[in-house]
């Protein structure tokens, strides 16, 4: 039986690889990712379930699944021209991915399927900093958090619980970690970005409140607060919060082992270790 050994949550700003290439390993961003990478390494995962909001690069509005699982032996990317990011080939834990989908459908989750796909910065910026050797196979779980109407927070939490159950019933003795990719609060290219910036966090107080909930393990409170209205009012890609909420469903109610909040940027870097 497989075991869920913990999780990490990080932002995936497509400017990060270039910024770190320019400012070096002592920059704030590199340091924050380095701390989370150490936490993840300590979990010794054999596989990594990635909750991510594709940014209309893997899927588009001609065919947009609300929840989809990537079931293949590998994927590649970035497919969106992320600056300073090398071309990566990433192994996919195909058997576990298929098992998550099987268990999901059996449990009433209508999970769409993609068996040939590339991924964008939302998957590869976190992996670039956390697992640059790309030696840990992933299970990509796409949550449509960009194009409203968004799935509800409770549904995404239930999706995380499903992943936890699927891991527990996976036949192989694997150590599985989960990754939430995204900001807590962010507007890109819309009218809510602060000042005359093209992107940014429209509501740092909301981001700080989310970060406090994460730090204190106040999952039920966060679920009640993270309404569709609240999320959409806080920025046009703030639905990335749903990836974090799915992660909380997977890891259960526990406090993080490490948490660094950057509310002015709408971001947090958090790790949870399962005992």
């Amino acid at each position: 039986m497989a075991e869920l050994v913990g999780g990490v949550g990080v932002p995936h700003d497509p400017g990060f690889p270039e910024l770190v290439a320019r400012e070096g390993p002592r920059s704030d961003v590199a340091t924050r990712f380095g701390e989370i990478a150490a936490e993840l390494e300590a979990m010794r995962p054999d596989a990594l379930v990635v909750f991510t909001a594709d940014h209309m690069n893997t899927f588009f509005l001609d065919n947009l699944p609300l929840f989809s699982v990537g079931v293949a032996d590998r994927t590649t990317g970035p497919n969106d021209g992320t600056p300073a990011l090398p071309r990566y080939d990433v192994p996919v834990a195909e058997g576990l991915a298929a098992h998550v989908r099987d268990r999901g459908i059996a449990a009433g989750f209508d999970l769409a399927l993609t068996q040939e796909f590339a991924v964008d910065h939302s998957v590869l910026v976190p992996l670039h900093f956390l697992t640059p050797a790309m030696g840990i196979p992933i299970v990509p779980l796409f949550i449509a958090g960009i194009a409203p109407p968004l799935p509800t927070a409770r549904r995404c939490f239930a999706l995380g619980e499903l992943v936890r159950d699927a891991v527990a019933s996976w036949r192989e003795p694997a150590r599985v970690a989960v990754l939430a990719s995204g900001s807590l609060c962010l507007d890109v290219g819309g009218s809510k970005a602060p000042g005359t910036k093209l992107s940014g966090c429209p509501d740092p107080a909301w981001a700080a409140q989310i970060a406090r909930r994460l730090e204190r393990g106040e999952t039920r409170e966060l679920l009640a607060e993270a309404t569709d209205e609240r999320i959409r009012a806080s920025g046009n890609v703030s639905g990335e919060l749903l990836n974090w909420i799915a992660l909380l469903g997977a890891i259960g109610e526990r406090k993080p082992s490490l948490a660094t909040a950057v509310p002015a940027e709408g971001q947090a870097f958090v790790a949870w270790r399962a005992r």
Binding site: H55, M56, I146, A147, D187, V188, G189, G190, S191, A193, L198, N236, V237
Partner: peptide
């Protein structure tokens, strides 16, 4: 265009 429903992420 945003008021008409277009998404800033794509409009940008």
């Amino acid at each position: 265009l945003e008021r008409l429903g277009a998404h800033g992420y794509l409009l940008a």
